[in-house]
Design a protein around this nucleic acid. Structure first.
Lengths: 310, 310
DNA sequence: TGAGGGCATAAGCTGGGGTTATGTGCAGGG
DNA sequence: CCCTGCACATAACCCCAGCTTATGCCCTCA
């Protein structure tokens, strides 16, 4: 029992307070008192007191300053609370998505969406929709453009979202935003220090880390580089966007990915965008519906929330 | 016990699997088998099996497809896993930050940083540092520029980070990135539909929702608008960036915030950036150290990770 | 000075998640 | 053709984190 902790990764779950504790901390920050926070979260005051205290023990930092007139965050507590808020927001997105995924057939709004949109954009929209029209039960089915089209035409979905160059036959649609494919590399990669923009021909000639042939991203890229000599043999072909990102960060080769997929990595500077000259790698994000049947009711509400997505 | 559930918010924690379960799911996705995932996370196979199963029950969705030769994610499972990854990443940032906050005096690297940088950028850098130089214990103190300067000059910190227009006296520094203040409004606000850029004078004449006077953001904004007639009386003055964001989303007034603070909201389209003509609202993000003492060792490692932050 | 708001402590209960032990089903080699 | 190996499931039991109720202390304010 001693020689077998190969990947020593002592779980995050042991070092990070659980969601309930983080939510409680946010409530304390908002309401200025343990007791009020406890009531807001539906537990008793001693429970809140003990939970906050054990969180402080776990983190080794005093988070709230107790006084006989209430509790305020310490400086460290304010910082921790901000970080906690990010975790809770991610959990809210998870919840919104998961709830839609479970959504039974009796949902008031049935959405079919491409993977990229379902993954990166829908949870946020669903949270906004929930805020604006609480009680709208949404169900979600994710699949590629043809699956989305099939669902809509078969009456099994009320609203669809696709990305790509054209609207599937039988559907009407409206552009709700742009997705740009961007060239990314690790900050350590030489391209990150270029002063001149990359040319399309250079990009085409460089072996990249890519999603497997057949993915939407790959198709757009192939098409765009066709007139520049075509894509070089990939250095590595991987099945998931996540795997590609990880490989780009560690291996020393660049990739081309949806900007939706790398927003986080760019701001955290784990990846760097490499500007390319003379290459249009945009693709439209569209909401779609069966020709003639303009969205109404909940579908219209959701559509309203999505217009102009970057 | 029936009339007092005012804010009915049945905790997220009851609907979202806890971090341990999410980490386990990621391991299953990566390793392709419950047993291997269990080993990787340091638990037994039955524990993993039961945990995944209870997560499926909780979410009401089948996540993995079991077979006698291993387990693969279902389509829904892949989506859930992607959402889970976001939660886990936020938790990693939390952990990195919290660990630095606790950091004892014997840390190998003592960092002093402005609130904005500590909140939005440092956790990512610390994760990167941990990946690159595991075992570098970091301690963090957050405060405004003068606190940072004081710590550095007093020998209580090895490296500092400040945002603002100038380097505090007695310190050397290097620009590691730009922070832009941007005008944001709710998508429902008329400004979101403008076709022409806002002018500085228009902005100055409009009552905004702002941080209280004295915040760094507020100072930069005041200075920039001084030559355009000065800032109009704020509609609302709030103590935290979070409160400002919430108010902008719900109230119908715009605000001016650091782009670091609103990245999330922009991509989720809860807020919209309003372009302004003829106004430079940039401010430099700088790493700083006592004059003459160029960072070495761990401080140099961290500095290397921060260069070129957007 | 008494009342009330706010936090802490104590004692006891419960359930989720862990462990060990064991069973079932499928694949592939001798 | 059967046996071994691997992967997952089930069962029985244990433990502790987090909840509750009950109570006490401290401070403020009318």
């Amino acid at each position: 029992m001693s020689a077998e902790d190969e990947s020593v990764a002592v779980s995050l779950a042991h070092r990070v307070p659980d969601l309930g504790a983080l939510e409680l901390l946010l409530a304390v920050a908002r309401l200025g008192s343990l007791g009020r926070a406890a009531r807001a979260r539906g537990i008793t005051q001693p429970a809140a007191s003990s939970r906050i205290r054990s969180m402080e023990r776990q983190l080794g930092v005093a988070l709230v300053e107790r006084s006989p007139r209430g509790s305020r965050l310490t400086d460290a507590g304010a910082l921790v609370t901000d970080w906690a808020r990010r975790v809770v927001e991610a959990a809210e997105a998870f919840d919104a998505g998961a709830q839609a995924l479970r959504g039974r057939r009796d949902s008031r709004l049935r959405v079919a969406a491409s993977m990229t949109i379902a993954e990166y954009l829908l949870p946020g929209w669903l949270i906004a929709l929930r805020a604006q029209r609480p009680g709208t039960a949404v169900s979600l089915l994710a699949g590629n453009s043809s699956v989305v089209a099939e669902r809509l035409l078969g009456g099994a979905a009320d609203l669809g979202f696709v990305e790509g160059l054209e609207v599937p036959a039988g559907l009407d649609g409206t552009v709700i935003g742009q997705d740009r494919l961007i060239v990314v590399a690790a900050p350590s990669h030489p391209w990150s220090r270029r002063r001149t923009e990359l040319t399309a021909a250079e990009l085409a000639a460089t072996p990249l880390i890519l999603r497997e042939r057949g993915s939407g991203t790959r198709q757009v890229l192939d098409a765009a580089l066709a007139r520049h000599g075509g894509l070089a043999e990939p250095l590595l072909e991987l099945a998931s966007t996540t795997a590609v990102k990880a490989a780009v960060v560690s291996e020393a080769a660049p990739s081309v990915l949806s900007e939706l997929a790398v927003g986080e990595e760019l701001t955290a500077r784990r990846l760097v965008e490499i500007p390319v000259r003379g290459l249009r790698l945009g693709r439209e994000l569209r909401a779609v519906w069966p020709t003639g049947q303009r969205p109404a009711g909940p579908a219209r509400d959701l559509l309203g929330l999505t217009r102009g997505t970057p």
